[in-house]
Design a protein around this nucleic acid. Structure first.
Length: 498
RNA sequence: UGGGAGGUCGUCUAACGGUAGGACGGCGGACUCUGGAUCCGCUGGUGGAGGUUCGAGUCCUCCCCUCCCAGCCA
């Protein structure tokens, strides 16, 4: 690339990494890596009240888990640090530019209380007007305004700094995703706060200062920021800075509400960490997210991060919001697990240990057997590793109850015949009998007794496993301990067939 | 309310103005046992009304719907 491409992902540590943020991060990463650019992570922690402990750490850990890496961040400082806005504020980075805007008259101090602001807004809404800020120093000279400041200060009021919006301006940019967009300055809601009373810069101001100072070339973010963009361009222009290229990507929204993902949507798993815990594969998460709002040329659907990187083309980003479909994610994850089941095997076995089906020591000793059990039980059908637990529990680790329906199968005329025939032949089979051996044994009983279908299979299943459904029976029998099965059969016989 | 951005099967999406295709889901069948496995099949869509055109998902006009911003949140 001839031009220096620098993009960034700028989370606020107010929560864990959710799917929507992950998507923004992934696409910024793809953009950087595809064009040989630099990927920066900056922490936007200007709202001290909402920051949570470990928010930053969790964000970074989850990004790394997804397979992303970065070139500059708080934990990997580059030359444009620091990379936390709180630290940048302590260094006076924002103050310098706030002072400059104050000095040039492009910003001013405002002492209105939150109560005043609220009642102004109420009055505007009652009059069916859009809420907007009303400039309180209209017609005053600089000296008169300074005098007002002193007056308010004397009352002990703390000011915020507001940017004086040039109302006649129209701000326009060519959005990488959405094309040409124009918004008039008078539509942003009036003079807006760039510095809060506690001295922290606001998001719309800090983001501009930082993106400029960090030489960010392309701002790729969610399209919930489209309406913020004119405010940000105002600052670039007021400070005489070049405006970066903007790209506003469609959002991932909640399928039920149609709104953007929110922490309050508890019926939906929306944090990357939750999927990690259930045993989703990071490649699958990236694959699924990468195909939400972006599509490749062909009709393939399974891609790795590096394949996405090669194919990436910002022109194929879609403009419309995408609903989050967990079923499709499950399918993608299933595909990834099946692509290399052996690689996932340690994780699957760990699930069984976590569920106390087997001790860690025993699991280590019986690795081969566990792998077979997991495969026969149907690992190919699960959506995430945690699901393997209930699939293998019965009959490999526990026996279920015998239901009335099962008793009927057992005690029917056919059932009794099958049970008797099965018992005598099973006992005579060698312990290393193969699935084919079991199959031919069962076929022999079928031919002898002229009983087939459920009436044949169910009594055998019930006697050996206490189940009428489950994995392929012949394969299962090779994995069950013969003495245990014999005991199970004896117990069933005593209780129901005596 | 003002401004902005969007609307293709239930969901994710494809389609130089030229046969609306794929995937997930759902449904059905096969597998002389079950099924979350496997195979096969089916289902279902261009928000609406006009217009331009030989031909419109695509271009034009009007309407409808959804979302975003309008915070001393980001």
């Amino acid at each position: 690339m001839t031009e220096d491409i620098r993009v960034r992902y700028a989370p606020s540590p107010t929560g864990h990494l959710h799917i929507g943020n992950a998507r923004t991060a992934i696409f910024n990463w793809l953009f950087a890596r595809h064009y040989n650019g630099t990927f920066v992570i900056r922490i936007e922690d200007t709202d001290s009240a909402r920051n949570i402990a470990d928010g930053e750490k969790s964000q970074l850990e989850n990004l790394a888990w997804l397979g992303l890496d970065w070139d500059e961040s708080p934990d990997k400082p580059g030359v444009y640090g620091p990379y936390r806005q709180s630290e940048r504020n302590e260094q006076g980075i924002y103050q310098e530019f706030i002072d400059a805007l104050l000095a040039s008259g492009q910003a001013y101090k405002s002492y209105k209380t939150s109560g005043q602001l609220a009642s102004e807004r109420e009055a505007q809404q009652a009059a069916k007007q859009a809420p907007h800020y009303v400039y309180e120093y209209e017609g005053l000279t600089n000296e008169e305004r300074e005098a007002k400041y002193a007056e308010f200060e004397a009352q002990g009021l703390k000011p915020v700094v507001r940017f004086r919006v040039p109302e006649e301006q129209v701000y326009a940019w060519d959005d990488i995703v959405k094309g040409h967009i124009e918004i008039g300055a008078k539509e942003v809601g009036g003079d807006w706060v760039i510095q809060k009373a506690d001295g922290m810069p606001t998001y719309n101001f800090a983001v501009v200062v930082d993106d400029h100072l960090m030489k960010i070339s392309h701002v790729l973010r969610g399209d919930d920021h489209v309406s913020n963009t004119p405010k940000q361009i105002m600052i670039y222009e007021a400070l005489g800075w070049d405006v970066p290229k903007f790209g506003h990507m469609a959002l991932i929204i909640n399928g039920e509400t149609g709104k953007k993902l929110s922490k309050r949507d508890e019926n939906l798993l929306q944090f990357v960490e939750q999927y990690k815990e259930l045993g989703y594969q990071p490649q699958a998460m990236v694959n699924f997210i990468g195909l939400l709002g972006w599509s490749p040329k062909g009709e393939d659907e399974i891609f790795s991060l590096s394949e996405f990187k090669e194919m990436f083309d910002e022109k194929r980003l879609s403009k419309a919001n995408a609903k989050f479909d967990q079923k499709k994610l499950e399918w993608v994850n299933n595909q990834w697990m099946r692509r290399d089941t052996d690689a996932v095997m340690p994780q699957l076995i760990q699930e069984l240990v976590n569920a106390h089906l087997i001790s860690a020591d025993d699991a280590a000793d019986k690795k081969k057997w566990l792998s077979e059990v997991i495969k026969v039980a149907g690992v190919d059908g699960i959506s995430y590793t945690r699901q393997i637990v209930e699939l293998v529990r019965k009959p490999f680790f526990e026996l279920g109850d015998i239901t009335d329906e099962m008793v009927e199968y057992l005690t029917s005329e056919d059932g009794r015949k099958v049970a008797a025939a099965w018992e005598s032949t099973y006992e005579s089979l060698p312990t290393d009998a193969t699935p084919a051996d079991y199959m031919s044994t069962i076929r022999a009983i079928q031919n002898d007794l002229e009983i087939k279908g459920r009436n044949l299979w169910n009594p055998i299943r019930i006697m050996t496993t206490h189940e009428v459904q489950g994995p392929n029976l012949p394969e299962m029998l090779t994995l069950l301990d013969k003495n245990t099965v014999l005991k199970t059969m004896r117990d069933v016989k005593e209780k129901y067939l005596a």
